[in-house]
Design a protein around this nucleic acid. Structure first.
Lengths: 350, 350
DNA sequence: CTGAAAGCGCTAACAT
DNA sequence: ATGTTAGCGCTTTCAG
C-alpha cells in the first residue's frame, strides 16, 4: 500500500463558464423592466400575478440566482447571524452551535462561526470582523477573561444586536441566556449530602469566570444549609481535561481531610476524577461520589456512569435565538435576561 | 431561588448612532481623492509614502472600517471559505472545523459552516447558498447517501473551487483528502491477530458510504492474509451511538460462533461494545479485544481505554486547506488526491 | 503619483 | 401595475 499519493492533472484555466444571470437578463428576455423583476422575485410591491408568474418561470429557466453580495451591499446588512464561542471542540459548544445553526437555517438565516480561543484579543478581532461584515446579529459566549470589560458593547454603535449565552461579562445588562449555576452546584451538593456524604470537595478549572464563581457560591451555600463545614482545602482548581481531574483528585485524596464526595465543574474533569479513584482502589460512589457539569455524552462512557448537572442546550438555543431575532425584527435593543434551570441527571456516580 | 426571570427595559429605538465612515469621508478630511485613499489602505498602486501614512492615520483616527459588503460586491467574491459537514457534533467534525477555522483565520479568510444533517436535499440547498454567497472556496464532507451523485460539481460552473475531506462521492475526481480506511481496518485487524485473536468481528453503522466499505474491505483482506476464515455472521451493522454498539455486541455474543475481537467503525460504538461486554462479565481485552475508529477523547473515558485507529486531523486540515487555497490562488481547478495514513493508538482494549 | 469616470447588481422612492 | 432615476461603497481603468 502506498504511503501517500498525489495526482497532478491541470484541466484548464478557470474562466467565466457562463455569464452570471442578473435580473436585467431576465428582464430583457421578457421585454420588461428589471425593477419589476426584482419586485416579482421578492414578492414585494404590486406586480400583476400573470407577470409575476412569467418572471419566476423565466428566472428559473435561465438559472437565475440572486447575487447576495449585491443584495447585502444594497441592504447594508447581510442576513448572517454570527455565533462566537471560546472553543468549538467541547461538546457543549459544538452542540449549541449545531442546534443554533439548525434553527437559524429554518428561519432563513445563514450562520458564521467564530472561535476566540479564550483569548480576549482574538475576541476583539472577531468583534471587528462582525462589524465589517455587517452581520444581522450576534450570539456570543465570552472568553474566560472577559470579566469586567464589555468589548461587545461597540456593536451597539453599529446597531448590531447581540445576545450572550452561557457566559456573559459581569454586570452586563445586555440580553443574555445563562444557566443558574448557583442552583446547579447547590443541587448537586445537596444530592450528595442526601446519600450521606459529609466531606464534599469542589474541583474547578483555573478560569476566573463568573460561572465558576457562581458554582462555588452554590457549593458553599449548600454546605451551609446542610450544616456542613466549609473546608478551604477541599476547594482545588486546575486545568480543563481528564488528566487535570485525575491530578486534582490525587491531591485531594492525599490530604488528611479526605473528601467523600467531589463536585467537578466539567464532566471531563469528573471523569478524570473517577478514573483516578478507581485506579487507586477507591469505590465510586460508595467511598467517594462524583458529579460533573455539562451532560457530555462522554460521561456515559465511564464506569460508573457520571452523574451530571445538565444545562438544557435546546432551551439555551431557542432562548438566545428568540432574544436575538426579537431585537432584529423590532429594531429595538433589549435587555431581557433568562436563567435556565439546570437539572441533575442521575447516573451511577452518586 | 426564582425559577426564571425576565427583565424588560427598552432603551430607545435603534438609529444610526454615527454615520459609517467611508473612504470618501477620509478623503474629504484630507482634501484628496477617495480613490487614493482606497489605494493607500489596500497597499496597492503607487501612493507617496507620506500620503499613505497620513491616510492611514486619519483612517484610524476617524475609526474607518472597510465596508466588506461593498468590497465583496465590487470584487464579485466574498473572502469566505465554507465548510460543509454532515453533523458538527461528533468530535471528528467539531475538531476538523475548529482547526480549519484557526488556520483559515490566520490566512485572512472567514469561515462559514454548514451542516447537511446527512440529508442530500439539505446538501443541495447548501450548495445553492454557497453559490449565492459567492464563497471563495468550499471544503466538504458529503452525506452518507451522496454516493454516485456529484452535487458539488455545479460549483465548477461558478468557478468556486472545492475540496472533499474524509468523505467524497465515489469516483469523484475532485481534489480530496481522504484517510486510507482500508489500511486502517487492515492494521487494526492485524494488531488483534498478533495478540492471538482468531475470530474477529466487524461492526459498522448502517451507512453505505465508501469509507465504511473500504474499512470492510481492509478487514476482509487482513483476515485473508492471516489465513483466517471470513464469517458472514461476524459482520453486523446498526446505528451510530454507544447504545447501538452495545446492542450489536449483544447480538454477536449471542451467536454460536462468538468473536474474540471486535473492530468498530466508530469509537462511540466501540465504547458501547466494551460497556456491554464488561456488564456481562466478559473481560476486555483478555476474552474479547476491541478497536474503534476516530481517536475520540471519549475513548479515554472508558475502562479499559479504547484502542483506536487515528485519522490525523491536523494533516487533513492542512491538506485540504492547501489544496483549496492552491486552487483559489492559481485560479486553476485541480484534482490532487491525498491519502492520509491512519495510525493505531494502542491503549487498553487490545 | 494622483484624479476622474464608470459601473458592479440590486432596491427604495418617486413618477407614470 | 410598471417604469425611471439614483445611489449604496468600493475598485478598475484610463488620463493627467
Amino acid at each position: 500500500m502506498e504511503s501517500s499519493r498525489e495526482h497532478f492533472i491541470f484541466i484548464h484555466k478557470l474562466e467565466p463558464a457562463k455569464a452570471n444571470i442578473t435580473i436585467k437578463d431576465v428582464a430583457r428576455e421578457l421585454g420588461i423592466h428589471h425593477v419589476t423583476v426584482s419586485r416579482a422575485l421578492r414578492d414585494t410591491g404590486s406586480v400583476k400575478k400573470e407577470t409575476r408568474d412569467r418572471i419566476k418561470q423565466k428566472a428559473t429557466e435561465l438559472g437565475y440566482k440572486p447575487n447576495r453580495l449585491a443584495q447585502n451591499f444594497r441592504n447594508k446588512r447581510s442576513n448572517v447571524l454570527a455565533v462566537v464561542v471560546p472553543d468549538l471542540r467541547p461538546y457543549f459548544f459544538a452542540r449549541f452551535v449545531s442546534d443554533f445553526m439548525e434553527i437559524a437555517k429554518e428561519q432563513g438565516y445563514s450562520v458564521m462561526i467564530f472561535q476566540s480561543g479564550e483569548k480576549p484579543e482574538m475576541e476583539k478581532d472577531i468583534i471587528n470582523s462582525l462589524m465589517e461584515y455587517r452581520v444581522s446579529g450576534v450570539v456570543a459566549s465570552v472568553t474566560k477573561d472577559t470579566l469586567h470589560e464589555h468589548p461587545f458593547d461597540v456593536l451597539k454603535e453599529d446597531n448590531i444586536p447581540f445576545v450572550f449565552f452561557d457566559r456573559a461579562p459581569e454586570d452586563s445588562c445586555a440580553p443574555q441566556v445563562l444557566v443558574d449555576n448557583f442552583k446547579g452546584a447547590y443541587d448537586a451538593v445537596t444530592a450528595m449530602v442526601k446519600t450521606g456524604k459529609k466531606r464534599i470537595a469542589y474541583i474547578s478549572t483555573h478560569y476566573q469566570h463568573q460561572i465558576f464563581r457562581d458554582r462555588l457560591a452554590g457549593y458553599k451555600q449548600a454546605l451551609k444549609d446542610n450544616n456542613l463545614p466549609f473546608k478551604e482545602e477541599l476547594v482545588v482548581q486546575g486545568g480543563f481535561f481528564m488528566k487535570d481531574g485525575a491530578d486534582l483528585a490525587q491531591k485531594l485524596m492525599a490530604q488528611e481531610y479526605r473528601p467523600d464526595g467531589i463536585l467537578a465543574v466539567r464532566d471531563e474533569i469528573g471523569i478524570g476524577v473517577i478514573k483516578y479513584l478507581k485506579k487507586t482502589g477507591i469505590r465510586v460512589p460508595e467511598d467517594v461520589a462524583v458529579i460533573g457539569f455539562d451532560n457530555d455524552p462522554m460521561g456515559i462512557a465511564c464506569e460508573p456512569e457520571l452523574t451530571t448537572v445538565q444545562q438544557s442546550i435546546p432551551s439555551m438555543v431557542s432562548g438566545s435565538f428568540e432574544l436575538l431575532v426579537g431585537q432584529i425584527k423590532s429594531g429595538m435593543p433589549a435587555n431581557h435576561k433568562r436563567l435556565i434551570q439546570p437539572k441533575i441527571i442521575f447516573r451511577g456516580s452518586v
